[in-house]
Amino acid sequence: MLDFITPISEVYSFNNFSMEEKTPIAKINLRGNLKNKEFTINVEKILGMSLPKEAGNTSVKEKITLLWLGPNEWLLVSNVEIAKETNIYELEQVLFDEISKTNLGAVTNVTDHFTIFSLTGSNVFEVLSKGCPYDFDSEDFLDNKVVQTILSNIDVTIHRKNKNEIDLYVRRSFADYLWNWLKDSSDLK
């Protein structure tokens, strides 16, 4: 985890669409059974916020964002960058001790598994629609909603910040391909 090397080394902008990679942001995959009160209470006490329980919902606090990934799975994302040299995220250890070690759930650090593209501009959803089966005009897809779908044959997680801004989570090994695909696609013809 030391010496973070970014897969993308440019910032791109074209025709009311710009993107840049956000690095390095701590991400933790959290799994557990919502029906197990001990799990829910402990997690919510440690994080100081409630877990999103409805499909596609998120919870945001100053330093943490929680994304719903499934009925027993969440992605915890830090809202602030972590130190590039050490890549240490204190919350991981706390969660690991209180949740993993006590067998209440699973805590997995996926910081280097995913990278995040920040996409902004009025053409964002126009560009995504070129390679994605999800209906971004759906009434369910409001600000602060999250959706997992396919973009140009790749699994992605899309977190809508507002109508002109999203965070796009992509597996690191696919980042270069998707970046180039997005560049191509933003040239709306």
């Binding site: 499909a55 596609g56 499934g70 009925p71 089966p133 999800y134 779908t149 396919i150």
Partner: peptide, 17 residues
């Protein structure tokens, strides 16, 4: 398009399944 209703996520395109 062939739409499938996931019991957790709701209606989505079949290519996701």
């Amino acid at each position: 398009m062939f739409i499938i209703k996931c019991p957790y996520c709701g209606e989505r395109d079949h290519s996701e399944f």
